[in-house]
């Protein structure tokens, strides 16, 4: 019994730095600016002032930026799932000449922090006239270094997946593509789920790339937009910034809490254990 109390106590204390920031963000976004730095911090707003939430949308095309972030993350997620499941399957299942060498070439991407290649990529997209468009934020994650981890995860998954079903299908005359599409891919659902979560979060969090590539507010993504709630001639906009931050965080948290089981167990399936 004492052991249990100690364990629960420990868990509760450890929880604070994980939960308090989110709680503080949401409640403070409803406080008037003057109360944000009240000491000790108040856990509840004294009265609800939703003015900050209105300002979020008037100061920047926030709805548009929300859509930008969402659609970019969605496109990147789907694209990465397609590219990485194809490549991962091929590397795990199909014996073709040079497979190992090619796999090694692709693995280089795993070792390259995106900051290393940001300058040449910036120039490449500049040459193609794609600066201040969403293309760099879509193409690079799907085909470039960030998707290599996804390919790796998919390959690991297919390596340990029993072959029998696919072999049976091929004996029945199904071609490679059909076998992949109708047999292997549905079986790979857990790994695909993990890849989807990883990829979505990665794209959703992207910060360096948007601030480098994008310059007009209506093309901004959320992380970039969040840091723009400061104004040369306005007062501090802490509550507006917090309101915007809450708007980006809370919906995702809700989705996560609803689907947390699939979410966490999906991640446990990355084959990284």
């Amino acid at each position: 019994m004492r052991r249990k109390t100690v364990l629960y106590g420990l868990l509760c204390v450890l929880c604070v730095p994980f939960v308090f920031p989110t709680w503080w963000m949401v409640t403070s976004s409803l406080k008037p600016v003057g109360q944000i730095f009240a000491s000790p911090p108040s856990l509840f707003p004294s009265g609800i002032d939703a003015g900050a939430y209105r300002q979020v949308f008037t100061l920047q095309p926030f709805a548009r930026q929300y859509v930008n972030s969402l659609y970019i993350a969605a496109v990147v997620t789907i694209g990465t799932m397609a590219v990485s499941s194809l490549a991962g399957y091929a590397f795990a299942r199909i014996r073709f000449r040079g497979a190992n060498a090619l796999f090694f070439v692709i693995l280089v991407g795993l070792l390259i922090p995106s900051e290393v290649t940001i300058v040449p990529l910036f120039q490449m997209f500049h040459r193609w006239g794609l600066i201040n468009t969403h293309w760099p934020l879509i193409l690079v994650p799907i085909f470039g270094a960030p998707s290599v981890l996804a390919t790796f995860i998919m390959r690991q998954f297919f390596l340990v997946l029993p072959k029998e079903l696919e072999e049976a299908a091929q004996v029945d005359g199904l071609g490679r593509l059909a076998t992949f599409w109708r047999i292997a891919l549905p079986l790979a659902r857990p790994a695909l789920g993990a890849v989807a979560i990883f990829t979505f979060l990665q794209s959703w969090n992207l910060y360096l790339e948007p601030i480098v590539y994008l310059s007009s507010p209506e093309r901004f993504t959320l992380p970039q937009a969040l840091t723009q709630y400061v104004d040369a001639y306005g007062g501090p906009m802490w509550n507006v910034q917090l309101a915007a931050a809450s708007l980006t965080a809370v919906p995702v948290i809700i989705v996560f809490v609803i689907a947390q089981r699939q979410f966490i167990e999906g991640l446990a399936h990355t084959g990284l254990k």
């Binding site: 659609y71 970019i72 969605a74 496109v75 789907i78 694209g79 799932m81 397609a82 006239g129 794609l130 201040n132 468009t133 969403h134 293309w135 879509i138 599409w181 109708r182 891919l185 549905p186 659902r189 695909l192 093309r219």
Partner: peptide, 24 residues
């Protein structure tokens, strides 16, 4: 289901990507 989802996704991907970059 998953294959249908993926193909639908790919269609959306192509569509969105096509209109995502315009504007310059």
């Amino acid at each position: 289901k998953i294959t249908r989802l993926l193909s639908l996704g790919l269609a959306i991907l192509l569509g969105l990507a096509a209109c995502g970059g315009g504007g310059s």
